[in-house]
Design a protein around this nucleic acid. Structure first.
Length: 361
DNA sequence: TAACCGTGGAT
DNA sequence: TATCCAAGGTT
């Protein structure tokens, strides 16, 4: 059976949208540490590493971490052989620490199961820990030039504007995918993916989009209607709960304090101080029930404030000293004060340590 | 499916 | 100060 010829829309301007965008990209592309120079093949390891770091994280924040990781672990094998604690410590401050655990697991899987080479196919990439639909498509396109639609927040914004999609993005994802796939060029899939993201980051911005500089402005339904900023349509999000809790800093002598590694959940795998649960509202009169041991706990006057994705926290910091060595849970240990700083603490714990004056000298 | 999972910068 | 949001994934 003969496939019907795909209907081709007439393009009085000549170029297909992808070609227009690629021409714009060639002139305006951002120079980023993980990008290969024009015409050169990107290193799949560097592409993957950058994509994991960039999940929900700004380019400006990622740059320093990316370069530090690449110097320390230049290949996926090197990363696979590194102790997980080292990787987590290097990740400290970047947030979403499950990404670091999955990063290490993924490196191990690539080293063991794929001979140290990242698979080139989207489906195989999807099987790797920490690699979801976006990242699989992005790595396949950017590192292997596969014609895959890498749909992130930028692309959702560009597409909902281009086609004036009124449906809230959560429900419009299948439509957005369809529209994006229809635009994929026959060649330069990797550049197209990056061009779309550069367009979203530099021109088709969430607020104040620069439609005058947009190569697609003439084709953009939202722009023609002067309604760029009405898209994407979002559902209003739930109010962020405010929670309270306590953090316990137990000191032994001047240079030693009690650290803990939560096995999972918030700060899973990271070094932290013992604390009350933050997931529910434990009343202040119950806080000391969660202290690692009985002691003369002294509360700092001013709580530390920290905002997470799904709740805002004000945590009271308790400090106590002990000369004894009571028994603690298996995930607790005594740590040198100076090492703890080096080890990397999540930001909340760093704030608590600073409030307690641990890093004063 | 919805909740969970960090952080810092812009407005 | 409050809100949004940045190259999402997992459970």
């Amino acid at each position: 059976m003969i496939k019907p010829q795909a209907k081709r829309r007439k393009r009085p301007e000549g170029a297909a949208p992808a070609e227009t965008l690629l021409a714009w990209y060639d002139a305006h592309r951002r120079d980023l540490p993980w990008r290969a120079p024009p015409g050169r093949q990107a290193d799949p390891y560097a592409v993957w590493l950058s994509e994991i770091m960039l999940q929900q994280t700004t380019v400006a924040t990622v740059k320093g971490y990316f370069e530090k990781f690449l110097v320390r672990w230049p290949t996926v094998e090197a990363l696979a052989e590194a102790p997980l604690e080292d990787v987590l410590a290097a990740w400290a401050g970047l947030g979403y620490y499950a990404r670091a655990r999955n990063l290490h697991a993924c490196a191990g899987k690539v080293a063991r199961d794929h001979g140290g080479r990242f698979p080139a196919r989207e489906a195989a990439l999807l099987d790797l820990p920490g690699v979801g639909p976006y990242t699989a498509a992005a790595v396949a396109a950017i590192a292997f030039d596969a014609p895959c639609a890498a749909i992130d927040g930028n692309v959702e914004r560009v597409m909902t504007r281009l086609y004036a999609i009124e449906t809230p993005v959560r429900q419009a994802k299948p439509l957005i995918r369809e529209k994006t796939q229809a635009l994929l060029p026959a060649a330069r899939a990797g550049d197209f993916a990056q061009a779309l993201m550069d367009l979203g980051a530099m021109v088709c911005t969430p607020r104040g989009p620069l439609c005058g500089l947009c190569p697609w402005a003439q084709n953009c339904a939202a722009c023609r209607a002067g309604a760029q900023e009405d898209y994407p349509v979002k559902e209003k999000k739930a109010e962020k709960p405010k929670r309270r809790g306590a953090i316990f800093i137990l000191r032994r002598g001047e240079e030693t304090l009690l650290a803990r590694r939560p096995p999972e959940g918030l700060f899973g795998g990271m070094s932290a101080f013992p604390a009350t649960p933050f997931s529910r509202d434990v009343g202040p009169d119950e806080w000391l029930d969660f202290a690692p041991c009985p002691a003369e706990w002294r509360a700092l006057a001013e709580p530390v404030a920290h905002v997470f994705t799904h709740f805002a926290l004000r945590a009271t910091v308790f400090v106590a000293r002990t000369e004894a060595a009571p028994r603690f849970g298996a995930d607790c240990r005594w740590a040198a004060r100076r090492n703890l700083d080096k080890e990397g603490l999540p930001t909340l714990m760093r704030k608590a340590a600073a409030a307690a004056g641990l890093f004063d000298d």
